[in-house]
Simulated scan of single mutants.
Amino acid sequence: MPKSKRSRVVSLTQTDKKGREGKEQLYTQAKECVEKYQYAWVFSVENMRNTYLKQVRSEWKDSRILFGRTKVMAKALGTTPEDEAADGLFKLTKYLAGNVGILFTDHPADVVKDWFESYVKTDFARAGVVATRDFVVPAGQIYSRGGDIPADDDVVMANTLEPTLRQLGMPTRLKNGIVTLDNEYQVCKEGETLSGHQTRLLKMFGVAMADFKVKLVAYWSKTGEVTEVEDSTAVVAESAHTTSIHCHLISNSL
């Protein structure tokens, strides 16, 4: 029986109100954290991975990390001496731009710096990341690591993957059931921005070029002082180019 083409009334009673509620929750949490903790750190993230950020949250479970809408967090902290939530806190809000978050903690500054400087997780690059080195697959039989390790320590590339390699731009062919290249193939050059095809090839060959890092920008203490950790102008400019979708994903998890 054909479906009716008549207009149907759609109820909006189940419309998600999480957007406004999420902002209000983030605002309230930031206010409460200012009262509870001795320090507030602004940080940016390189090569965002939710898995690693969850690990950071777990390691700092006696502290609080807020990662979401920067305008909401800035409003909660205060942007002027008249509306700041605590003495000197308004000076920190100028760093709340781009893909940044706030760590509220009671741990001393040197402890925070040492921990985050040592926390680096290497992962596969995504499109838009800059290649950290050249990667060239030698001519001849192709191995699973693409020549990155000696052939004696490697295994041959499965012939079922040959069509995928060709689709991603590698001029491969099957020779007696073996995936081969007539000439060496350069997947990427150091310093170039990687495309989606390049990152897929790098992942197929097990080449990781992205480091997840948390970069500390500046911090406020209850003494009313705000201290820059590094060239915050460069950090904020860099983080502003990171896709805003990461902020949305993390804020939904708050």
Rank of each mutant, 00 (worst) to 15 (best):
R6K: 15
R8I: 15
S11I: 04
Q14K: 15
K17H: 12
E21M: 12
E24V: 12
L26S: 08
L26H: 07
A30I: 12
F43Y: 11
S44N: 09
S44F: 06
V45I: 15
N50T: 14
Y52R: 08
Y52C: 06
L53I: 10
K54D: 13
S58V: 02
D62M: 07
I65P: 00
L66I: 14
V72L: 03
M73E: 03
A74V: 02
L77N: 02
D83R: 12
E84D: 12
F90P: 00
L92S: 09
L92P: 03
K94C: 10
L96K: 08
V111D: 12
V112A: 04
V112I: 14
D114M: 09
F116N: 06
S118I: 01
Y119C: 05
T132L: 07
Y143Q: 01
Y143D: 08
G146T: 10
D148G: 14
I149L: 13
I149T: 12
D153L: 14
D154F: 08
A158S: 11
T160W: 07
L168N: 10
L174M: 08
N176T: 00
I178T: 06
N183W: 03
N183S: 13
E190K: 15
G191D: 06
S195C: 06
G196C: 04
L201G: 00
L202G: 02
M204K: 08
V207T: 05
T223E: 15
V226E: 04
E230T: 14
D231F: 06
V235R: 01
V236D: 00
E238A: 13
A240S: 15
L249G: 04
L249K: 10
S251G: 05
